[in-house]
Simulated scan of single mutants.
Amino acid sequence: MSENIAVALPADTTATEERRHREPLVFGGLPEAEGWALAPITPRDRVHFRTDRELPLAEFRAALPAGVTVTYDEGDGLYRVDGEPGSAEPLAALVRSWCAAGGYGTVGLRPETGVRRRAPRDLPAAFLSDLCRHYCRVSLKRLQRNMSTIRLHLPDNDDIDQQVAEWVLKAVSTYDETKSVPFGAYLATQLSKWVHDLGRNAYGRTAADTENKQQKAIASFTAEHQRRPSEKELAAYMGQSVATLRRNSQTVATLNGLRNLQSLDGGADAVEFVVPDSAEVPDEIMGEAEQTLLSHALTAACAPDPTARRDQRAAQPNVLGWATWYLTTWGGQTKTQLSADLNTSVRNMNVHADRAERALKERLAELAG
Rank of each mutant, 00 (worst) to 15 (best):
G29M: 05
I218K: 10
R313Q: 15
D82F: 10
S278Y: 10
H225Y: 11
E231Q: 15
A165H: 10
P10H: 06
S295N: 06
C99W: 06
D12C: 08
R137W: 08
H296N: 13
H21E: 12
P120Q: 04
A165T: 14
T324N: 02
K179E: 13
R151A: 09
E231T: 13
A33I: 11
A301I: 01
A62F: 04
T292R: 12
A165G: 10
S249F: 05
T189P: 00
T324I: 01
R145P: 02
A126K: 15
E290V: 14
N157C: 09
L140S: 10
C132V: 15
T106A: 03
A33P: 03
H21C: 06
A202L: 10
I218P: 03
R200F: 02
V346T: 11
S263D: 10
Y186P: 00
S87E: 14
A39T: 08
L258E: 11
G266R: 14
P282I: 08
D45G: 09
V95M: 07
V172F: 05
D158A: 15
S241H: 02
R22L: 13
Y326V: 00
M286T: 12
D45F: 09
C136H: 08
E233W: 06
V181K: 06
K141R: 12
D73W: 00
R310P: 01
V164F: 05
H352P: 00
G83P: 00
A279D: 14
A188G: 00
D158K: 13
A365R: 15
P304F: 01
T69N: 05
N256H: 15
Q337R: 10
Q162R: 15
E54T: 12
Q226C: 01
F60V: 03
D341L: 08
E366H: 13
K141A: 13
M147L: 15
A93Y: 04
R309C: 06
L94C: 05
Q316M: 13
G28E: 08
V115G: 11
I150T: 08
W325M: 03
Q215R: 15
R46I: 10
V168N: 07
G67W: 02
A63T: 04
V47W: 05
P120I: 06
V138M: 04
E233D: 14
G35C: 04
L264V: 02
A270V: 02
W194E: 09
F273A: 06
